[in-house]
Nucleic acid binder design. Structure first.
Length: 131
RNA sequence: AAUGCAAGCUGUUCUAUCGCCCCGAUCUUGUAUCGGGGAGGAAAGUCCGGGCAACAUAUAGCAUCUCGCUUCCUAACAGGAAGGCAUUUAAGAAUGAAAACUUAAAUGACAGCAAGUGCCACAGAAAAUAUACCGCCCCGAUUUAUCGUGGUAAGGGUGAAAACGUGAGGUAAGAGCUCACGAAUUCGUUAAGUGAUUAACGUUUUGGUAAACCUCGGGAGUUGAAAGACCAAAUAGGCUAACGCAUGUAGGGCUGCUCGUCCGAUGUUAGUGGGUAGGUCGUUAAAGAUAAAUGGCGACAUUUAUAUUAGAUUAAUGAUAGAAGUCCCAGCCUUGUGUUGGGAAACAGAACCCGGCUUAUAAGCUUGCAUUUUUU
RNA sequence: GGUCGAGUGGCCGAGAGGCUUAGGCUCAGCUCUGCAAAAGCUGCUACAGCGGUUCGAAUCCGCUCUCGACCU
């Protein structure tokens, strides 16, 4: 089952401040991914926030469309791509996906790019653990 | 019939799989199962007007902002309805030709320049108290075709705009200087109309500009749900009341100013409290929608009936696949409400709620106007 | 969600009803030089868009677009 509940979203203002102040980030077009680990175990191994700038997209319709496609891609892939690497850790991953693309793409593009982003994130986490 | 423009109306439907937000029910009390609901005509822009809430009691005066033909509608409005007037266009009839007239449509920030002040570039003699370039006239001088003192706004040319137009009298020449007819205009009387206004008569005046200052009349207290109310946990520099102290002082708040009013340093005692973060309410049933009847020219109002009801808060209403209908393009022959293949579907996403306005809109339908072609 | 401000050549920026707009920087050409720089001369390129008021609009008024700031 590929669910996506409120508990998997990052809503707390405090956590957001923590994430953007201390988190590390990388760019994988069209996403800018920011992540940070906190030592507070949660029902789910990760909480995510999706972000589209008002400056880049004037109309609310376009922003909603991008957010919905990103969310759908995240929902369908997190179980296979992201969660297995996190389950053995006793920490919560705070994750932010900022959309920085210039155009509107099809859903398949989102799916492909998000998979690549997950792959890169996993390697980075592994590297961090080894150090 | 086609195309274009303008105004108005509608603003695709169904199935499967995987999800999201809210509400209700059940018991196995868990990210459980079942059932129900889930964007718009503009949800947009935030351009106006209200409700609601807090602050203030100072809805005081001034300043500031805003509205501006009339009557009506409305909770209210810079909105709407009906009318008046003006301008433009078209047609009609009239005429030598126009103007005026009649009808229709469109447009109008449509109070006042006859309260005062300012401004009117360049050109032009002069842009508002007529300061006379050419021209016209009187008088004087003489070198006899020129000069000088004056008068004159009829003619010339300039300009966006030239001292109301035509004719006559008048005069040295001229001039609303006088008269007749006419144009616009102020005020008054009479008549019609609720009124704007219209008609007649008398009277006054004769450049434009108030989206120039301004005058007159009406309206606006300020802030905006991130307003505001409440809840439980823990710690302060906080708050309240009483007393004391000083000329209620320094200083500060209340709307920009005035006037007025309120608070008011430091000490003692008693009580209360919640920086920040979180949750609940505010928050979705309403000046609401649809239908009918009645009243009204109409906007709209009244009565009755009916069915419902988005409610998030890093912010739901989606993704994938398929089918049907609509429109467009191409092919086929059986030329049809045919069939096959390919494409298109706009503008745009609620965030406290309503009433308007404005702007954006594929495709279809309705109405009006314009152009072109064909037929009669 | 709400409140407010701005838009003038490639860039900065004055102008607040009247000559298609002051000045500086940049760019192009010429003069000067053996070649450049500096200096001098000449030139190019603008009122965000649409509509209205006015004889006349960058300026006044309305709508639209773009950019920016503030309220947590």
């Amino acid at each position: 089952m590929n669910k996506f509940n409120k508990e998997e979203r990052l809503c707390s203002k405090k956590s957001l401040d923590l994430l953007f102040k201390n988190g590390s980030s990388f760019l994988l077009y069209p996403f800018r991914v920011t992540y940070y680990f906190v030592a507070e175990p949660h029902l789910f191994p990760a909480q995510v926030v999706i972000n589209v700038a008002k400056k880049r997209y004037k109309h609310a319709v376009d922003r909603n469309l991008i957010k919905r496609r990103t969310r759908e891609a995240y929902r369908l892939q997190k179980e296979q791509q992201l969660y297995p690497n996190l389950l053995n850790r006793n920490e919560l991953l705070l994750l932010s996906l900022q959309y920085v693309g210039k155009e509107k793409y099809d859903y398949s593009f989102f799916e492909k790019k998000l998979a690549l982003a997950f792959k890169k994130l996993n390697t980075l986490i592994a590297a961090h653990e080894n150090n």
